[in-house]
Design a protein around this nucleic acid. Structure first.
Length: 561
RNA sequence: UGCCCCUUCGUCCAAUGGCAGGACAGUGGCCUUUGGAGCCACGAAUCUUGGUUCGAAUCCAAGAGGGGCAACCA
């Protein structure tokens, strides 16, 4: 499946200009640099599409680099999940690298910085460092250790590395300017002591670089040309440039910032997503309500839909909040053209065809695809005297423009027969328990030989041969468009949508799906797109996750109950 | 409050000094064996005020509004 030309954006123009002028003297090189401390989400997908897409388009390369500088939070299981998700999205990296590959080089740079007076060992505690940094309106105060001699600094740094000091005893800081208007530049921390096992390197190190120290230099080592990151790193660009210059790289990479994706009714903060998992608001990183790649996959979303979505939203420097409708459109648009239609009654109401022979079952042919989808194929569906129809497809006292079944009205059973409702059967409490209808034997397949038109077509499943299944109706994760808006970090869980998952037992699906593998996607006609759940669905007990509803123009005209 | 960034239809993105355009959403219609899909049409924006220019969304200035930065997180 070919995707349209990527739409233009300012980064693409920068890269095109680089190529035209030969600015870096090397081919286009980008990187996707996740920290292996959580799962990738839809926001990362935007970055992945950008970085890998640019490399592809300009004949360059794109590395996958794990930014693993914090031994407290990182884990190999995240590395594996991240690799899997990127490949599932349809991208392959040129090389797999790790910031931890560069710890030796980073340490050499640190010593060199110390030798030429560009860095010093500070022995203030964490709190003192923070206080002495000053505020946005007041300059910081230099550390009492700022004037240490090169010899002393070198000695301390080596002993830090050798493990002679406990966590927090010393840090290595760049010596820049404690009064710098950019807070980031007030002698930023480079190395800190952490007596912790690294998930990859074990106990080889007890000093670990901070993001600012590791990132730009890692880019430079890999020969990255444009280092793409999100807007909140704008201020870090100063230290990025300072470091790659200090380390002596020619034609160093250039950082370019773009706006991260904010999607309505969900969140894309790894830290907050982790909380949803830990506090049990969802069942895991791959809960289909999660905006993670793993969650979207389990929800039934395709990689193509995600890539199209990424292209649709574009890339800019303005913080942007995208409507869920934009995402849903990308999903429906893709699914519409590729998945077979089958019938499933989510909330069944029994229909008895009083003039249909008892015990008879016929097999009717039903196309998998509508006329306007260029795919072919069909299956046979059993038709019998007793059927299930959707409870909401019958109304005893219908409002205007209700085209479905009502007393005395004729409707079409899709690919079946025209039926007319003759009698409404209720229980003692007045609840409708079944409908008695008659069918017109001359309308097999759904066409009337006399050419009469029926306004409504409804879906159905044979009661004799329908399969019991579980249907999981997923909806937006939060009840408000921006759950993080309050500013209070703790508030967002209060907005978790209690109806984000509605589990329906006793739905009835046509038997054809039994032979399909798990993760098969369908459109349940008139209901929505669904996928057989990857982990819970079995032939004995099929489970279907709703990926997205169909557009429902009836919902707009329907009078509110 | 210091520094930095941003500001175009309801939303997202184009227009790179020369007719403000697309997508999503919305509205009306056509079509329809999915109230799906598709097709047609309609409405909808350059934050404000000055300046430069034959000509400004675009360049300059001021203002307003929004966002980021004061973790030994990334």
């Amino acid at each position: 499946m070919s995707e349209a030309q990527p739409r233009n954006n300012f980064i693409r123009e920068l890269v095109a200009a680089d190529v035209a002028t030969g600015r870096f003297g090397r081919p286009v090189a980008t990187r996707f640099p996740p920290e292996p401390n959580g799962y990738l989400h839809i926001g990362h997908a935007k970055s992945i599409c950008l970085n890998f897409g640019l490399a592809q388009e300009f004949g360059g390369r794109c590395n996958l680099r794990f930014d693993d500088t914090n031994p407290f939070t990182e884990d190999m299981k995240y590395v594996e999940a991240i690799r899997h998700d990127i490949r599932w999205l349809g991208f392959e990296w040129s090389e797999e690298r790790y910031a931890s590959d560069y710890f030796d080089t980073l340490y050499e740079v640190a010593e060199r910085l110390v030798r030429n007076g560009g860095a010093y060992v500070d022995s203030q505690d964490e709190e003192a460092i923070r206080e002495n940094r000053g505020t946005v309106t007041e300059p910081g105060t230099p550390s009492p250790h700022r004037g240490r001699s090169v010899e002393e600094n070198l000695d301390l740094l080596r002993r830090m590395k050798a493990g002679e000091f406990p966590d927090g005893a010393h840090v290595l800081r760049a010596k820049i300017d404690m009064a710098h208007p950019n807070m980031i530049m007030r002698d930023p921390l480079l190395l800190r002591i952490r007596h912790a096992s690294h998930y990859r390197l074990g106990d080889a190190w007890c000093i670990y670089p901070l993001y600012d120290f590791a990132h730009g230099l890692s880019d430079a080592i890999e020969g990255i040309t444009r280092s793409l990151c999100t807007l909140e790193f704008k201020d870090n660009r100063d230290i990025y440039d300072w470091l790659v210059r200090a380390a002596g790289y020619e034609h160093p990479p250039l950082q370019v910032e773009f706006a991260r994706l904010e999607l309505d009714y969900t969140i894309v903060s790894k830290r907050k997503l982790l909380r949803l998992v830990n506090e049990g608001h969802v069942t895991g990183w791959d809960d289909p309500r999660m905006p993670t790649i793993a969650g979207l996959r389990r929800r039934g979303v395709t990689p193509e839909a995600i890539r199209t979505f990424a292209d649709t939203i574009g890339v800019a420097r303005k913080p942007a909040r995208v409507e869920m409708a934009t995402f849903e459109h990308a999903v429906r648009n893709d699914l519409n053209m590729r998945v077979p239609r089958v019938m499933c009654v989510v909330s069944p109401l029994k229909v008895v065809l009083t003039n249909y022979p008892e015990g008879q079952v016929e097999e009717l042919e039903a196309s998998y695809y509508p006329h306007d989808v260029p795919l072919t194929g069909s299956r046979m569906i059993p038709f019998s005297r007793e059927l299930w129809i959707e409870r909401e497809d019958f109304l005893e006292n219908p409002p205007k423009k209700f085209f479905r079944l009502t007393p005395g009205r004729e409707v079409r059973l899709r690919y079946g027969y025209l039926i007319t409702c003759r009698e409404v059967v209720k229980d003692d409490r007045g609840q409708i328990i079944e409908l008695h209808c008659t069918y017109d034997p001359t309308t097999r397949g759904g066409d009337a030989p006399d050419g009469r038109k029926v306004q409504g077509t409804i879906h159905w499943v044979s009661a004799a041969r329908g399969i019991d299944c579980e249907v999981r109706l997923y909806d937006k994760l939060f009840t408000v468009p921006d759950p993080e808006a309050g500013g209070n970090d703790d508030d967002f869980t209060a907005y978790v949508n209690p109806e984000s998952l509605v589990v329906v037992q006793g739905a009835k699906v046509e038997p054809s799906v039994l032979s399909d593998p798990v993760e098969s996607r369908y459109q349940f006609e008139r209901v929505g797109y669904f996928v057989q759940d990857a982990t819970d669905s079995t032939p004995a007990r099929p489970v279907f996750n709703r990926t997205v509803t169909l557009r429902d123009s009836w919902a707009k005209v329907k009078p509110q109950a």
